[in-house]
Amino acid sequence: MNIAVLVKQVPDTNEIKLDPKTGTLIREGVESIMNPDDRLGLETALMLKDAHGAKVTVISMGPPQAIDVITEAMAMGADGGVLLSDRNFAGADTWATSYTLGKALEKLLAETRLDLVIAGRQAIDGDTAQIGPQVAEHLGWPQVTYVSELKLEDGSLRAWRKLPGGVEEVVCPLPAVVTVLDAPQDPRWAMVDRLLWACGPKSPIRVWDAADIEAPAKSTGLRGSLTQVMQTFSPKSERKTDWIEGTAEEQARHLVNALSQRNLI
């Protein structure tokens, strides 16, 4: 059993702000973390490893410092890691990102069998939830999204999908791509001895650039992106505040009227 887990290093979004003067993102001093859904995806893979024995390889695309999420994943129990890092990968939208990840998975598939790819449902910096399905399409594999629990059966997987209205149980043949938004247990802690191994001279982490995965510049990064960012702005400027005056009774009545006119109550 071979499992690839896609992880992303993200800024802790609660701290992200726009510079009020320039309108650009302030990234200084913002901590980088492993995307929470990806951490749950890794835990799901490691639970399968505990139950069935599996080789778990984590893959991340990002700048050189994104290697930190790979070493962390390996300290938690992953067996190998690949960092996809190249100047040409910067500024990618989800099309270009899924293409790059897809090319890396093709290279892994040329080396070894892969039964399952697990990704987090979405990343907290973009919240798009597009990478999992797009990577599945790149590979031509079926996809199971919004998964909270995963079991392996003979040649297939059984997954529980956590949807707003309830839980759907599905069976899907392998190989497949699964996106995860929860796991039956909290993600495990990193082990210090494993961390030393992952950071040390015998670390099996590999770094691949565009040439390694045969990804042409026109299909990666900003150049390969089909969508472009036109502008970014701070969201709160949109609200025009309606100050409701009067006694408490008058204020309450005015508010209830205004809300019901907007069909909010």
């Binding site: 800024p11 979004t13 609660n14 992200i16 702000k17 726009l18 993102l25 907290i124 910096d125 973009g126 919240d127 089909l226 969508t227 472009q228 960012v229 036109m230 502008q231 970014t232 702005f233 701070s234 969201p235």
Partner: peptide, 21 residues
């Protein structure tokens, strides 16, 4: 089509377009 969406947990809004396809 000008497509505006929240990013970074709602702290930032971004307007996105698809020029070529």
């Amino acid at each position: 089509l000008l497509q505006t969406r929240p990013a970074f947990g709602g702290n930032v809004m971004a307007t996105i377009y698809t020029p070529r396809v």
